[in-house]
Nucleic acid binder design. Structure first.
Lengths: 150, 150
DNA sequence: TTAAGTGCAAAAGCTTTGCGGGTAG
DNA sequence: CTACCCGCAAAGCTTTTGCACTTAA
């Protein structure tokens, strides 16, 4: 993600914080930056590790609390995945995911034809759809190469 | 799920076990039955609770191990979801999900037009797609009603 | 019979919570 | 000033592991 886009997102965060009576602390800013720099749908733990690499110590509790509140604010989203720890996605725009069933990696893809899919009517279920996402499930390159060796 | 369909799935499990040198133990059979009877993409813990309701005591470790190996065998699948514990799906056929962003509930839907989606070419990424699934994200009826109260 | 599976208990990993002290606005 | 936020540490979940005992085929 380029610097310009990152600045915009920080600006957006500043706005949302003001709007919701939250303080834009250095920790919050750093956590958002770390997520924006990750393209691998990181867990809280990986976000903390990325901060540590930059010599920023932020407590584990703060990382968890902050990511959760960012997701509530809509600055970032939660990625759906088959594993067992929450993963966050820096993207809030429409895109789709390749999900590796072996290593549980999640890879972003863009595809105009998928964006145009016909959203079914879910009103009779009382479910209000705000967005959609296509998951293409399969095996990633790395996992296939690993397999070939055995 | 009707009795006939359940029997077929147990038969399928027997086959797969034989094929992979696994023993079809009473625990494994009971765990599969419990998953087949659940329509809510249960966690390991909920599967164990369902067994307990039927007065079947199966250790936690066995439930975890077994669900994991069922998913590897392809008797059941793992559901992708935004939360923090693994959830299993009794369905192995193509279908789609409504995901509630508030309570993280996952609801199955069937839709022929979604089934007919144009799958993009991911070969240049080295990713081999075996299946796909559409996630419609939004807020479920229960969560909206809850919200209206406040 | 005997390889494979299970239960148990402990360890390991993930997430939340309560609280006292610190800080932005 | 004052509400909000952070770090810490402990508690609460979820999942895995090692090992001795049991059992299905």
């Amino acid at each position: 993600m380029d610097a310009r886009a990152k600045d915009l997102r920080i600006e957006q965060l500043r706005h949302l914080c003001r709007q919701h009576g939250l303080v834009l602390t250095p920790q919050r800013r750093a956590i958002l930056q770390a997520v924006l720099e990750a393209d691998d749908h990181p867990t809280a733990e990986r976000v903390q590790a990325a901060l540590a690499r930059r010599r920023l110590r932020v407590s584990r509790a703060t990382v968890f609390r902050t990511l959760e509140s960012f997701a509530r604010l809509g600055v970032i989203t939660k990625a759906c995945h088959p594993g067992s720890s929450v993963r966050y996605d820096r993207r809030t725009d429409r895109h789709h995911h390749l999900v590796c069933l072996r290593c549980e990696r999640v890879i972003d893809i863009q595809d105009a034809r998928l964006d145009a899919l016909p959203v079914p009517d879910t009103r009779r279920l009382g479910f209000v759809v705000s967005d959609f996402k296509v998951q293409l499930r399969g095996i990633c390159r790395e996992c296939r190469e690993q397999e070939d060796k055995t």
